[in-house]
Computed example of a mutant assay.
Amino acid sequence: MNNIIIIAPPEEKKKWIKSFKILKPEWELQSVNGMSNPDTIDTALVWNHPKGIFKKFKKLKLICSLGAGVDHLLSDPDIPNKVKITRIVDPLLSFSMTNYIVLAVLQYHRKMDKYTLEQKNKIWDHDSPPEINICIGIIGLGILGGDAANKLNYLGFEVLGYSPSKKKINGVKCYSGNELDDFLRKINVLVCSVPLTESTRGLLSKKLFKKLEQPTYLINVARGKVQIEN
């Protein structure tokens, strides 16, 4: 097969080509510089591509993001409407990210920052309740958000979820559509795992935060542009 092109930064491209030679030695991956005929290309493996590059490929049918996100693709206006876009779903990535979310929740729930500081200052505060009562809300119930919801529910936490479309997760009350405000009012830990799209850009803002119980602990594992920090 020589109808596949890989478009990525040089070092990353080398690693991918090396892996494909092991897994699919019969595939002949083309690069932009060494491409013989762009009209033969129907599949593009892509990460951080230069905008406008897809105009070269008149018979393109499939674009595969070489990462878990597709925001770098959706922001390119030159991608033909009928081209299918896929992404990598890596169980190890979900495992690592969910572990981070669980760690962050437990650190807040068990007041570990407070106890670490008191340990450093040689303070023994045995009168303080050891845990904070929490209700965890996860906004974005895709592969990552759904996995985190399941793991936190398994640990015995009260977990709510929100997604634009209806979802069903055992043991987790799921909100959708215009129920966002109702969802936000019920939680005091917010985990954000939404993809970066035009509708989620700037989602984490003062407007949203004002709808939360005070204080609410934020764990943002989404793209940076989902949150307005100023």
Rank of each mutant, 00 (worst) to 15 (best):
K21Y: 12
K56T: 05
V194Q: 01
R87N: 13
D113K: 15
G142F: 10
I138Y: 07
I228Q: 12
K168S: 14
P50C: 05
F54N: 08
R201I: 02
D71P: 07
D127E: 11
T216I: 11
K211L: 13
P77I: 13
G177L: 04
D182A: 14
I53V: 15
V221G: 04
T40Y: 09
N3W: 02
K13A: 13
E12C: 00
I6C: 12
V70L: 07
L190S: 00
M97L: 14
V159M: 04
N81P: 01
I228K: 04
P91M: 05
G224P: 11
F54G: 02
P195Y: 05
V189N: 00
S96T: 08
R110D: 05
Q30E: 15
L208N: 07
G137E: 05
P195M: 03
K122E: 12
N230P: 15
L212D: 04
I85T: 09
L212G: 04
S31G: 13
G177N: 09
C64A: 08
Q119D: 05
L144F: 09
V32Y: 11
A149R: 02
I228N: 11
K51C: 12
G161I: 08
M97F: 03
W16Y: 14
L60G: 03
L141W: 09
D71F: 05
E198S: 15
L74T: 08
V46F: 01
N2Y: 01
I139H: 01
H126Y: 14
P25S: 08
T98P: 06
W16E: 06
N153Y: 04
C135V: 15
V46N: 00
E229V: 15
L73C: 09
Q107D: 11
G145M: 04
S75C: 12
L103I: 08
E179V: 06
Q119P: 02
L60A: 08
C135N: 12
E118L: 10
P38S: 00
Q227M: 14
S165Q: 15
F183L: 08
K55S: 14
K151Y: 06
K59I: 01
P164V: 05
K61E: 14
K210Y: 03
K151V: 15
L60Q: 10
D39R: 02
Y217P: 06
K114I: 14
C192M: 07
T197E: 02
I134Y: 03
N121C: 03
L208M: 14
V159E: 00
M97Y: 09
L144A: 06
V89H: 11
L60D: 00
Y100F: 15
L103P: 00
L23T: 13
D42K: 11
L106F: 13
I136T: 06
I101W: 02
D42E: 11
I6A: 05
P91N: 08
T43E: 02
Y100E: 09
D113F: 03
G161E: 00
I5M: 06
P9L: 06
S199Y: 02
G171S: 10
D42M: 01
C135Y: 07
V189H: 00
C192I: 13
E213I: 14
P25T: 06
R201S: 10
K167E: 06
K58V: 12
G224M: 12
V189S: 00
D39F: 03
E131I: 15
Q30T: 09
I85K: 08
S193Q: 04
